[in-house]
Amino acid sequence: MNSVNKIVFIILLTAKVILPQGQLGDQFNKAKELYSKGEYFNTITELKRLIFFDRDKRYAYISNELIGECYKMGAKFTDALNYFTRAEMSATSSEDIYKCRINIIKINILRRTTGRAISLLDILEKDSRFNGKREEIDYWRGWAYIFADDWDKAAIQFSKISPDHELKKMCDSIDNERYSVTKAKLLSYFIPGAGQVYTGHYLSGLLSLGWNILWGYTTVTAFQAGRIFDGVVVGELLWFRFYNGNNQNAEKFTIERNREISNGALSYLQNGYRGEKP
């Protein structure tokens, strides 16, 4: 009888230890299944439930990480950051810490806080635990520069991985395709409308040139005829206004054109590029 009692006691004790863990494991599997179906809201609910009942925090890292992923999929970047940070706090290996930090960096890239992403990458690079991750760090730094619209620096980062890296070539080509704001403004300073022509806005460039010739001519003839007041007023209110507007337009058109080029490239990266993305 005594030994029977002992066996029953051991069975009960084992059940008490194992069953809740099994329940938690089932709960995690349920959340994972919801995640694979793309039901991110429900995934988060079930993972939060798991975290709430997981007294030993066995699933803390993996649950927080998956919640971060779900929030990221729903473009809730601040919440995603919050949960990736929680995951990092629960991480037990340097590999897991690295994974969380990269996730945090990716979120910063996506929400265009690229300065923060780059400084986090710098910290990661200096950490001796991640010496073997240099290539990957350069890769994400390249992406950070892409989102910062600095294609030249992005190309440099990708070239560190390989001089023939697909993204290096692409960044170089985008950088060459882009227009220079300084060049457009300088052109417009010397020949009104030339900056607009440089960015492909021919009609606007010709109109700008026409207005400047008209008001310039009117101003000069007014001074030549001794009508100083007329000259000053037309020069100040019309010629100067059109000349200044021409310079501002040259800058505006260049920025717009560059934005179109960058957006086209980002659209390709989102839909056409097969490599890893933020």
Binding site: Q23, Q27, I44, T45, K48, R49, F52, F53
Partner: peptide, 27 residues
Amino acid sequence: MYSTESRRLFADYLYCQKDYLRAIDEY
């Protein structure tokens, strides 16, 4: 985990976490 009491506790937790939408679902 899905008993009435557990759900109530979990809903309270969500409410205090300011995750109101999920708290409403649980309640």
